[in-house]
């Protein structure tokens, strides 16, 4: 299936992953025995039509949902075997999330949003402020540190979300439709940014998307249809 060699270590290893939902008592097979590996430092786009299973796979890898069958390992940790608390810790320490609708805390400034996740990790106040400022500055929005999400454009909010996701140095950045609410110009800026993070810092990025532009910036393209991987190719 996969023609991509896994060098530099495996961050995600999915084997025979299935997930079935019950909708109005009708089983919907979102994933059917998916095998998927994701190498450290890779930038992979998961694409496919609506209902193909890309978001489901992203959620399973992110520990937001549980597979009915198969195994998922993130950075060597078997996600299936973890309790809810352990999953929370896994997400907090190893995975960065970027959501379609940014999902920033509206009452916190950009810097505080970035700091917040480090507070959950128990990082000392001085250090987290320093890292938050650094992270925002590296994404080109340092001067917006004290603005709240409502005072930022969509693209700026998404950058804050990325800053929040990478400030903890996760082994994996999961982005679910990160460009869905952005115009094409902003999307391109965002993708350049993600690619730069991937190239320069080696941040592993897995994104679910409909957007061909996103697929174009990824190093590897995985296409799902009806809960199965139908294409897996390098860009």
């Amino acid at each position: 299936m996969s023609d991509v060699s896994v060098g530099n270590g495996v961050v995600v290893d999915c084997a025979g992953v299935s997930r079935t939902y019950q909708e109005d008592a009708v089983p919907v097979h979102a994933l059917r025995g998916v095998d998927f590996q994701f190498a450290r430092g890779d930038f992979v786009s998961l694409s496919g039509p609506s209902g193909s299973g890309k978001s489901t796979l992203l959620n399973l890898i992110g520990g937001l949902d549980r597979a009915d069958a198969g195994t998922i390992a993130v950075d060597g940790v078997a996600v299936n075997a973890l309790s809810e608390s352990e999953l929370s810790d896994l997400r907090l320490h190893k995975i960065g999330f970027v959501f379609q609708s940014y999902n920033l805390i509206p009452v916190l400034s950009a810097q505080e949003n970035v700091e917040f996740i480090m507070q959950l990790q128990g990082v000392a106040p001085g250090e987290r402020a320093e890292r938050a400022v650094e992270s925002l500055a590296s994404l080109g929005i340092g001067e917006l540190a004290h603005r709240r999400p409502g005072e930022l454009s969509g693209g700026q909010q998404q950058r804050v979300a990325i800053a929040r996701a990478i400030v903890t140095h996760p082994v994996l950045l999961l982005a679910d439709e990160p460009s869905a609410n952005l115009d094409s110009g902003t999307t391109e800026e965002l993708l350049k940014l993600l690619r730069r993070l991937n190239d320069d810092r080696g941040i592993s990025i897995l994104t679910a998307t409909h957007d061909p532009m996103v697929m174009g910036y990824a190093k590897r393209r995985v296409v799902l249809r009806d809960g199965a991987i139908v294409e897996d190719s390098a860009n």
Binding site: E115, Q119, P125, A137, S138, G140, H146
Partner: peptide, 23 residues
């Protein structure tokens, strides 16, 4: 522009616990 804000240039109130502030 981003680099205008240097690393470590944290505001004075950054040591404030965030949870009560959010609440």
């Amino acid at each position: 522009m981003a680099e205008a804000v240097a690393a470590g240039d944290a505001p004075a109130d950054s040591a404030r616990p965030l949870m009560p502030a959010i609440a």
